[in-house]
Design a protein around this nucleic acid. Structure first.
Lengths: 118, 118
DNA sequence: ATAATATATATAGGTTTCCGACATATAGGC
DNA sequence: GCCTATATGTCGGAAACCTATATATATTAT
């Protein structure tokens, strides 16, 4: 089957979700992910490198991301390693976004119903 | 201060969020929480009793919930223990719901921008 | 009567994921 | 040379979850 292959991966925790989300537009290396996550979360999430690189190893093993060619762009630091979403990884991000939307709706429904006195 | 006292509790994990959310309309005992969470999550979340009672102990200690009078209502099972949200607990649920809404928006924005070719 | 079921609370052991601290390596500016 | 920014990685501990197990009580079926 293919509709439900995202199920065992959900829910994602916040850092993992942001890492995958940062790869949605295209491939990136670890440090670039770190900076992008700060940006798209408006500084609300600042990953530690421990969280980042352990997550990348895990996501590789789970088949949600894969390595692409190393961009040896001139610049400081150790050699970069580029990562991109797999098809499965893309479906997992989309499924998690959908879960979050439903959860948010369920929450506001529950809080509204209370105020109405139901 | 009082605006930011919810910060150290966020993000909540899914089971904890649903437990607090189930208490929003009013006090409940543990087993009732278990059933309510199944209902408001449309069976997507089924708490184990381990998760539930450990979470209740933790939330009590953190001051997000408190005990109310034991309703010794006639019925089967061990004596019930009733719990309700504290003021802090209520603010935490609301802050988490707000965080989820923003996270959901950020996610859809990121996925949409990609499709637009940015 | 008694056996089975649904209700109700609780603890123990193991796993996953995260976080903070530390370690290593490279390039450019002062 | 030294500092800073870039870049990857490991280690130990903590938080929260899950599965399994244990206990207790009332109702229902046999």
């Amino acid at each position: 089957m293919r509709e439900n292959d995202t199920f065992p991966f959900l829910p994602l925790r916040e850092p993992t979700f942001f890492i995958l989300l940062s790869l949605f537009p295209g491939e990136k290396h670890g440090y670039a992910i770190l900076k992008e996550v700060e940006q798209i979360s408006q500084k609300r999430v600042e990953l530690s490198t421990g969280t980042l690189y352990e997550a990348l190893a895990r996501l590789l093993e789970q088949g949600l991301i894969e390595r692409s060619e190393d961009g040896r762009a001139p610049g400081p630091g150790k050699p970069r390693k580029l990562y991109r979403l797999t098809g499965l990884g893309r479906r997992v991000v989309e499924a998690e976004a959908e879960r979050l939307a439903q959860l948010s709706n369920a929450a506001h429904r529950q809080m509204r119903d209370q105020r109405a006195g139901g």
